[in-house]
């Protein structure tokens, strides 16, 4: 058993030198790490640097998971940010209106009710997306463009663009607390990433998602209820956006209709960098996690070097093109 795992690990290392996105990404991560370690020195390894990296990654990470699910099926979910904001506002509204000031059973209960209400909203948006995409055959980019505008419209209309803020301590802990030095938000990310990885790799549902992403028609003709699978997939995507909402509002201690909008295209960037095929069918959670680590490492290192965050954006774009070009360049070399 041990032999076998070490063999497969060896194989993976071997393949990483010759091919595979995971291999390319691992190499990239290690070389970036070495470069930044040499340029920045000790400060790069300080506990506070590592912790600040670990605090920033989860929001983008959970949103990228939500995007990844849709991408794997050959779709796209442009409504994740708007869903997260509407969910966050729902929870924030409930928290600020219903939770009593003194601690007690009602205090705990209402917080749970608030979060449940938020997830109900997220689930509903997911159902709308899934129904329109799977049962009305609308292309995912159009359907989610519509729900994105709709959700944002509801959020702006109800709040008039204002911020809702001031939450109880347990909520704030989700975004800012640590457990044995590990940010709780990172734990939340792990609690999302691991089930998603299991769902995709070890369940019939996951296998069907990959199949739909590769060839939807063939999957349908082979007896899979592709509509039911897609509906469920978009609900999961929406619920993940809901989790991101909780982390985001907890970190800022506020909710707003327009938070995190610049994340939308970055989630696509992260997922594709992580080896998710934008036309569906291929991509692993492991690749996405590596991609997120690379993006976060560049961002943190540039921050330590006092370089503009906008330069970080440009470098992220450059790395995406470089990694996306690797398969073609390798094929050219082989020829």
């Amino acid at each position: 058993m041990k032999q076998e795992t070490s063999l497969s690990w060896l194989q993976r290392v071997g393949r990483s030198l010759g091919g595979g996105t995971i291999g390319t990404l691992t190499l990239l991560l290690v070389s970036l790490w070495v470069v930044f370690a040499l340029v920045i020195g000790d400060r790069f390894f300080s506990a506070s640097t590592l912790q600040s990296m670990a605090f920033q990654m989860p929001e983008l990470g959970i949103l990228s998971l939500a995007m990844m699910l849709a991408l794997l099926s050959g779709g796209l979910n442009l409504s994740i940010i708007a869903t997260a904001n509407l969910t966050g506002l729902t929870i924030a509204f409930m928290l600020t209106r219903t939770v009593p000031g003194s601690e007690g059973i009602a205090w705990v209960g209402w917080q749970l009710v608030a979060i449940a209400a938020g997830f109900a909203v997220a689930g509903l948006i997911g159902l709308i997306n899934g129904y329109v995409i799977a049962y009305l055959n609308v292309s995912p980019i159009l359907a989610t463009l519509g729900t994105m505008t709709l959700c944002k419209g509801v959020a702006i209309g109800l709040t008039r663009g204002n911020v809702i803020s001031g939450f109880p301590d347990p909520i704030i802990f989700i975004g800012n607390g640590t457990i044995f030095g590990v940010p709780f938000a990172l734990v939340v990310f792990a609690l999302c990433a691991v089930p998603v990885a299991i769902l995709l790799n070890a369940t019939p549902f996951g296998a069907k998602v990959y199949l739909i992403g590769s060839n939807e028609k063939a999957t349908r003709y082979s007896g899979v209820d592709t509509r039911a699978v897609l509906l469920r997939l978009y609900v999961y995507s929406s619920l993940l956006a809901g989790v991101a909402a909780v982390v985001m509002m907890a970190r800022f201690n506020s909710a707003n209709a327009a938070y995190g909008e610049s994340y939308l295209l970055v989630t696509i960037l992260a997922a594709v960098l992580g080896g998710v095929d934008p036309f569906g069918g291929f991509g692993k959670v492991g690749g996405l996690v590596l991609a997120l680590a690379i993006l976060q490492m560049i961002s943190s290192a540039f921050n330590l070097l006092n370089l503009s965050q906008f330069l970080t954006l440009a470098i992220w774009g450059g790395i995406l093109i470089a990694v996306a070009a690797v398969p073609h360049l390798r094929a050219l070399l082989r020829r």
């Binding site: 295209l265 594709v272 954006l313 440009a314 774009g317 450059g318 995406l320 093109i321 996306a324």
Partner: peptide, 15 residues
């Protein structure tokens, strides 16, 4: 480089 246009334009937007 044979990269899908959606990836290229997401990347160049940022660049």
């Amino acid at each position: 480089l044979r990269i899908p246009s959606i990836i290229v334009s997401v990347a160049t937007l940022n660049i």
